[in-house]
């Protein structure tokens, strides 16, 4: 009993430390008073003001467009790469997989600076395109990571079986292979979308002066002094990412459950 109590208490403490700052942020976003230490009553005022703020709305649009486009392109490229890698021999595949994993483990700041350097070296104007390219680059590994296990589960003969029954290789891919790996492809897309939405460091180094995503916008705003709208914006971002992650994990859990459709 005592042991159980302590283990629960311990978990409680950990969760408190992890989430208390975010909870405070969320609470402040509904605080009518501008003070950070006084509760002035419940309000949606900051949310209202947030949506009136054209700069922030522009940043939101940019963020969503970049997240969606980069996730989509990364999904296409990553899936194709995963399929190619899956049919390689073991040694080259392992080496390639390790190489593609590096950007995920690499410190964001290194990735960000090196991407900025290459854009500058190629005389590429920093702006929307450079951010998009950077996001595609760091998203591809996440897609490969979620498509690969699905490909491994695939019966190596299903593709041949489809062709044996008269399907062209392309038809066989879309009718037989893609539906089987689609859950992995979709997870990859959402993971990439979340990562893009979430990114600050790499965006910061590759964006140039013209555009802002939400995270870089918040960063510039905060330097001028924190306005409560930022709390509201951060809350929305947190909830969005949280929902996306819950969605991705639920999908994974569903797939692992032994369901039998009859």
């Amino acid at each position: 009993m005592v042991k159980k109590f302590f283990s629960r208490f311990y978990i409680g403490i950990i969760l408190l430390f992890l989430y208390a700052p975010i909870v405070i942020l969320i609470v402040l976003s509904f605080n009518a008073s501008k003070s950070r230490s006084k509760w002035g009553g419940f309000t949606f005022k900051w949310y209202h003001e947030l949506f009136q703020n054209e700069d922030i709305m522009a940043a939101l649009t940019t963020t969503l467009i970049i997240a969606f486009t980069s996730a989509l392109i990364a999904t296409l490229l990553g899936t194709a790469a995963a399929i190619a890698m899956n049919s390689m021999k073991k040694t080259p595949r392992t080496i390639l997989l390790a190489i593609t994993n590096v950007p995920m483990l690499n410190a964001d700041i290194v990735t960000g600076i090196s991407l900025m350097l290459i854009f500058v070296a190629l005389n590429f104007t920093l702006g929307f395109t450079s951010v998009l390219l950077a996001h595609i680059t760091f998203n591809i590994p996440y897609v490969i990571l979620s498509v690969m296990p699905k490909l491994k589960q695939l019966n190596s003969h299903t593709f041949e079986a489809a062709q044996d029954l008269g399907a062209s290789p392309l038809y066989a891919f879309f009718k037989v292979i893609l539906p089987d790996i689609f859950p992995g492809v979709l997870s990859g897309f959402f993971l990439a979308f979340t990562m893009s939405l979430d990114d600050f460091v790499i965006t910061h180094f590759t964006k140039g002066p013209e555009i802002n995503t939400l995270s870089t916008k918040i960063y510039t705003e905060v330097r001028k002094g924190i306005k409560p709208e930022i709390y509201a914006l951060s809350t929305i971002m947190f909830v969005t990412v949280l929902l996306l992650l819950i969605f991705i994990n639920r999908r994974k859990a569903d797939k692992n459950a032994p369901i039998r459709k009859v």
């Binding site: 003969h157 079986a161 489809a162 062709q163 290789p169 089987d180």
Partner: peptide, 19 residues
């Protein structure tokens, strides 16, 4: 190519389309 041959194959591990 196999898709143009007048023969069909039964594979060792069935290779049914699971979806």
């Amino acid at each position: 190519p196999s898709n143009e041959r007048q023969l069909n194959t039964v594979f060792q591990k069935y290779a049914l389309f699971n979806h």
